[in-house]
Simulated assay, not measured.
Amino acid sequence: MCLGVPMTVVEGDEFSALCARGDEKRRVSLLLVGPQAVGTKVLVHIDSAIRVLEEEEAAQLDRALDGLAAALRGENFEEAFADLIESGPRLPAHLR
């Protein structure tokens, strides 16, 4: 299984950008999203930026990935998913 991860553009040009998440940095393609300004959050999947993210969505994804890592280490992870736990199960709008 492959996961997309939120990353921040550190530097870039018309076709690619150096992006960072924590200590990790990687060069990613911008062909699907176009040139992006430094500081822009993008969803990176297989070294390609596939979507520009809003700050809050990027933060939610970061929390979820941190929670997943904590669960894999056998640590408490519930706080990473507080927004889901508090709201309970919900059907997507198109299924209601």
Rank of each mutant, 00 (worst) to 15 (best):
E57R: 11
D66N: 14
A17G: 09
E57Y: 04
R27L: 15
T40E: 08
G74L: 04
G4L: 04
G88W: 03
F15W: 11
T8C: 11
E78P: 03
D47S: 15
K25T: 08
A70L: 08
A17Q: 08
K25A: 10
A58W: 00
H94P: 01
S16P: 04
R63N: 13
E24F: 10
R90H: 11
E54G: 14
A37F: 04
G22Y: 07
L61V: 00
N76P: 10
E78H: 08
G22E: 11
E75H: 03
S29P: 03
S16G: 08
H45A: 08
S48Q: 15
R96D: 12
E75G: 06
I50L: 03
Q60L: 13
A82N: 12
L43Q: 06
V5P: 02
P92S: 10
L91C: 05
P92N: 07
D23W: 07
L30G: 01
A71C: 10
K41I: 00
G22P: 09
Q36W: 01
D47E: 13
G4M: 05
K25W: 07
L43Y: 03
G39S: 05
N76S: 14
V10R: 15
R90V: 01
A37V: 01
E79L: 08
L3C: 06
L84Q: 12
D23G: 14
L31A: 12
R21N: 14
A64Y: 11
V38M: 12
G88D: 04
L18G: 07
A59L: 10
G39V: 01
L53K: 05
V5M: 12
A58S: 07
P89I: 01
A82K: 15
L72Y: 11
E79I: 02
P89A: 14
L61A: 09
F15T: 10
R73H: 09
A49E: 05
G34E: 04
V5C: 06
V10W: 11
M7I: 02
R73G: 05
F77P: 02
I50R: 08
K41D: 12
V42R: 02
E79T: 05
V44T: 01
Q60E: 11
V42G: 02
L72G: 14
D13E: 11
A64G: 09
V44G: 07
A59I: 00
S48L: 02
V44E: 04
K41M: 08
V10F: 06
L95N: 09
D66P: 03
G12M: 02
A37K: 15
V52T: 06
L18A: 09
E79V: 00
A82D: 12
V42W: 01
G12N: 04
H94L: 09
